[in-house]
Design a protein around this nucleic acid. Structure first.
Ligand SMILES: Nc1ncnc2c1ncn2[C@@H]1O[C@H](COP(=O)(O)O)[C@@H](O)[C@H]1O
Length: 739
DNA sequence: GTTTAGCGTGAAC
DNA sequence: ATCCGACACATTCGG
DNA sequence: CCGAATGTGTCGGATGTTCACGCTAAAC
């Protein structure tokens, strides 16, 4: 077998699953206060100390290996069993799930608070902490706090707050406002750290993470905590916690309701966790998913509008309307135009809950997400000046109508139910879509949707019920940037800056500042930043990049002169000085956006705007390329101008778009694979076991033709492995050496 | 003393 | 938003 | 038929850009 050619058996067709659960909804974050009942004090006598709470968490965090999930759940269960009252249980849950009101405490403030802990053993604790973090001595601020507090020791009498005290401190922090707020907050946070972490330093770590609000880092979040809660006995109906939370995010209320006869039904004025869609990477993959699902061929392709998810609650008689964001925040004040549109007499409902996407529009034209996000976030006074843009609501589902929860009804029913009672208007529109049965129809629909400036399609099983909070297989998203085709171009960009990772990535660089090539005025090459990227990298690649870049990093902190960077775009980076050795990465993105942080295209566009990338991610490294072969600014600019939204604006304002630019780098597809999913049926799964990873590495190393594939570590050649084994190319004795 | 620029935070994607 | 790793559980393969 | 290999789902935790808002610090 010659090295440059690919065995026929290895024809790989990318067609299958990339099912990725996105991160969980941060369902609880920042919910506006709606606490009507004063909180009774927990029993003072046996109230749980934060130190004890922290010990449980610490133990749970150390569990790993096979069976770890179960053991972790058991450990958390013991924590629950140490709880003495429902009130205390509320606190435990809210703390574990970081369900706090907005407290305006972030990374910087947590650092500064180290100086407010009254530490004796460390001089300039905040400085020390920052140093630890920059060197990766400590994976996150929380661990840093723990380390500082540990040094203090527990000699003498030491504060040890109970959960109630901690909660009250958090509430106090959330209330701090106006002049001097930052200082007051910092002091209070410092005090809280002392109260939580003097007796048990791990308590400092956890209170820090709780305030930061991104999870406790113990390998247990909402789902796992709920599993443990299901087994505890103090509060009845524990196994219903999750479903109840999906229909009412208020933990206090839900725990109370569990004590009665509870049912997970949609309720007016109480936000329902929205359903999400699974990503799909091609028309073929979609068709395959639909068919293997079997039963129903009753599917609908709907435009995926690029705006914000909005849940509309309305009641005709009381003339009330309430709007909730995807994360269940109350955003009623942000869309005053729509409130009126919801309470017209033209509608034939008494009350209703709609699922919709709100989009910035100009008449019939759909505007980019960026325009929508420029609208004010808070209710504007009566003296509203010209708004940034009109908005329209594209309704695509209905969860509740006239006092009845219709979550369980099939989509078909729900749809026909709404359209009967909802009256369309400029503000209230219906999501465009069509039924489809085969790949061809789907392909056509996809093309249409993209030309209409949407992100792609959402495909829905018309026979499926509404599943709150679930990334259900009954909804598939097919976005243009997922597609392996010329529809989405990739960019080859140079890593010009690096930044140390956090948490589990603290031993390597966690993200990279990327730049593209541009001709400097003097004819020299200048590079312009286009995005930072930190996803799409495997641990292997991260380690390699660390080894590769470490020697190239300058210690000066001065932006190198080959680089054209804005001041905002150059904050927090360590610079690569040995530029010509800098690694090149092939990346992709969902959109090209206007940027004030990055410098790409400065000088090529009107209003001295520059271009950045939305949702950038690494496809692969390009060790075969040097910076001089990176994509150019001009190419990026023409990609920008090629976007449907930009074109449509140009059409309406000017005559025509710019002339077509030189061709982009295209991703390679191995010959014979295109559209031949049935030909061999060889492919594709995730290569996540070590032997499979090794195999992939080998294949990539030996047949460069494979490299240009959209190779994420989890969507590669499983069957290729089998085939090679069967063909005798791989043997048991020498699994990888037979090439 | 008043105005403006900068920075941190949260939240949308 | 995207993506990856680890683990869990289901299904198929091969002796 | 059973253990190993493979296929797929679930969950947690890394990471991105941009914007408005409100406080702080600098500039006038
Ligand atoms: N017709 C539609 N049906 C469902 N979701 C839609 C639709 N149009 C836009 N979306 C949005 O797409 C989001 C899901 O995409 P993603 O967040 O990429 O998983 C939802 O949260 C909605 O806000």
């Amino acid at each position: 077998m010659s090295r440059g050619s690919v065995p026929a058996a290895l024809c790989l067709v990318v067609m299958l699953v990339g099912s990725r659960l996105c991160q969980q909804l941060r369902a609880f974050a920042g919910r506006p206060p709606c606490r009507l009942t004063p909180r009774p004090r927990a029993l003072a006598t046996r109230a749980m100390k934060f130190s004890k709470f922290a010990q449980f968490l610490e133990e749970a965090s150390q569990i790993s290996g096979p069976g770890s999930r179960h053991r972790r759940i058991q450990r958390i269960l013991t924590l629950f069993e140490a709880v003495r009252s429902t009130e205390e249980m509320k606190l435990v849950l809210k703390l574990m799930l970081c369900d706090l009101d907005k407290i305006n405490v972030g990374h910087a403030l947590l650092l500064a608070a180290a100086d407010e802990m009254g530490l004796k053993s460390t001089k300039k604790p905040a400085e020390k902490l920052a140093q630890w973090l920059s060197r990766g001595d400590v994976p996150d601020v929380g661990e840093g706090w723990q380390r500082l507090l540990k040094k203090e020791g527990t000699a003498g009498t030491v504060e040890d707050w109970n959960l109630q005290q901690v909660w009250e401190a958090l509430e106090k922090i959330s209330e701090i406002q106006s002049e001097g707020a930052v200082q007051k907050r910092t002091q209070l946070v410092g005090k809280l750290a002392t109260g939580c972490g003097r007796k048990e330093p791990a308590g400092g770590k956890f209170i820090c993470r709780i305030m930061y609000g991104k999870g406790l880092g113990i390998g247990a979040n909402k789902k796992t905590v709920a599993k443990a809660f299901a087994k505890q006995r103090l509060v009845p109906n524990g196994e219903r916690l999750l479903e109840m939370l999906e229909v009412n995010p208020d933990i206090d209320r839900v725990l109370e309701s569990l004590e009665g006869d509870c049912q997970a039904l949609a309720q007016l004025w109480s936000p329902i966790t929205p359903a999400c869609a699974q990503p799909s990477r091609s028309v073929e993959e979609v068709m395959q998913k639909i068919h293997t699902k079997g039963k129903s061929m009753n599917w609908r392709a709907e435009w995926k509008y690029d705006g914000e998810r909005l849940q509309i609650h309305a009641d005709k008689k009381s003339k009330q309307v309430r709007l909730f964001s995807r994360n269940l925040n109350n955003v009623t004040g942000r869309f005053p135009q729509v409130l009126d549109a919801m309470i017209t007499d033209k509608h034939n409902f008494e009350n209703i809950i709609l699922d919709a996407e709100v989009v910035a529009v100009d008449g019939d034209r759909i505007l980019p997400f960026q325009i929508l996000s420029r609208r004010p976030r808070q209710a504007q006074g009566r003296t509203k000046q010209q708004d940034v843009a009109d908005v329209a609501f594209f309704v695509f589902d209905c969860l509740f109508v006239d006092g009845e929860s219709i979550l369980h009804q099939p989509l078909k029913e729900r749809r026909s139910r709404v359209w009967k009672v909802l009256s369309k208007s400029d503000q209230i529109r219906i999501a465009e879509g069509q039924a489809f049965t085969d790949a061809k129809e789907l392909q056509v629909a996809l093309g249409k949707s993209i030309r209409a400036s949407t992100e792609g399609l959402i495909l829905k099983n018309l026979d499926s019920p509404y599943e709150p909070g679930v990334r259900t297989a009954e909804w598939l998203k097919l976005k243009k940037d997922y597609l392996d085709s010329s529809l989405s171009d990739s960019i080859d960009a140079v890593a010009v800056g690096v930044r140390r990772g956090n948490g589990q990535r603290s031993s390597v660089y966690g993200s990279f500042l990327l730049a593209v090539r541009s001709k400097g005025s003097s004819g020299h090459c200048k590079f312009q930043t286009i995005c930072a990227v930190g996803t799409g990298l495997t641990n292997q690649v991260l380690n390699d990049l660390y080894e590769l870049c470490q020697p190239l990093v300058s210690d000066s902190g001065v932006v190198p002169d080959f680089l054209d960077a804005t001041s905002a775009g150059s904050k927090g980076w360590m610079w690569i000085k040995d530029f010509w050795k800098a690694p090149v990465m092939e990346i992709t993105a969902a959109d090209l956006t206007e940027s004030s942080v990055h410098s790409c295209g400065l000088g090529h566009l009107e209003n001295s705007t520059a271009i950045g990338l939305r949702f950038p991610r690494v496809l692969r490294l390009r060790p075969d390329k040097g910076p001089e072969q990176a994509t150019t600014t001009e190419q990026v600019v023409s990609m920008y101008n090629d976007q449907p939204q930009i074109k449509s604006v140009r059409r309406s304002t000017k005559g025509s778009g710019k002339p077509k630019a030189e061709p982009m780098t295209k991703r390679f597809r191995f010959e014979g694979c295109e559209g031949e999913a049935d030909a061999g049926g060889y492919c594709v799964g995730r290569a996540h076991r070590p032997s499979e990873r090794t195999f992939v590495m080998e294949v990539l190393a030996r047949w460069p033709e494979f490299r240009p594939f959209h190779v994420h570590s989890r969507r590669v050649f499983r069957h290729g492995l089998t085939l090679l084994q069967r063909g005798g190319l791989l043997t048991k004795e020498n699994p990888w050496g037979a090439f």
